[in-house]
Simulated scan of single mutants.
Amino acid sequence: MRHIFLDTETTGLEHKLGHRIIEIGCVEMRSRRLTKRHFHRYLNPDRDIDAGALAVHGISLEFLQDKAHFADIAAEFLDFVRGAELIIHNAPFDIGFLNAELALLDMAPIDTVCHHVHDTLRMAKDLHPGKKNNLNALCERYGVNNSHRTLHGALLDAEILAEVYVAMTRGQESLIMDLGNNNSGQPETAEQALNGGQRRAQCIVRASDEELAQHDQALAAIQKESKGKCLWLSGETVS
């Protein structure tokens, strides 16, 4: 599956109040590896930028005066994301703005072009209830270097989100890719793995019948304690 990590910067917080997108950043991933393909544009919004938004991203209206309008890049953008799964932090915000821009052009919503949209903020809240789950907090939690993120930026944040996503889904990752060790003998970071760490030969150790029985007993106990909410048993019947 082709994944696109996407982020936007805007003139304000509410597209319903006429705020517009001023930056789009996307990076592509296939088989949990960044492909180095990306889409990045600054956009002229033809309106003022709220002071609060300017303090977050630092993109001035003066800088955007000679940039393209969304209408000029809409077709190219849709071609880049077409058929992919979008992964966005706080997806309702970005999707709302994208759909508002598309609606101004009498174009169909983004979900008619893309395969699916995943919200990593929702994922993080499910994994870490009651904790801060903004991108900076997740970088700290998963050991992702974001020291170069002094201001928000769409392309930079999309790249950071890709690394955070790999770390957040490491349980799935172990079934697909081997982070293993690099040539120095030290464990590879998620960043190294994203950018083409070498896959090592894997040794498959299968569970014995006794271990499988103990595993089933443990899942049954979890199912009982959670009152039927054991995720491992979703779609399965507990005997």
Rank of each mutant, 00 (worst) to 15 (best):
K227D: 14
M107Y: 10
L127S: 09
N134Y: 11
C230V: 03
G130I: 03
L156D: 03
I4D: 00
T237F: 07
F63Y: 14
R20N: 07
A190S: 05
G58I: 09
I73L: 05
G52R: 11
H115C: 11
A218G: 07
L61V: 09
L17Q: 15
H128R: 08
E62G: 03
E210W: 08
A220I: 04
R199F: 02
H69R: 15
Q202N: 05
E173T: 09
H19K: 12
G228S: 05
Q214E: 15
S208Y: 06
Q217I: 11
V117S: 11
K131V: 03
A154L: 03
H38R: 10
L13F: 14
L13G: 03
G180I: 01
D79Y: 02
K229L: 15
R33I: 02
E225W: 04
G171M: 06
T8F: 02
D48F: 09
Y42F: 15
M177Y: 06
A137Y: 11
F63A: 12
G197D: 01
L64V: 08
G235M: 10
R149T: 12
H3E: 13
K67Y: 03
L34F: 02
L43Q: 01
K132Q: 15
Q202T: 14
S208Q: 09
T169H: 09
R200E: 11
A71T: 08
T8D: 04
H40N: 14
G12A: 09
C114P: 02
P92F: 07
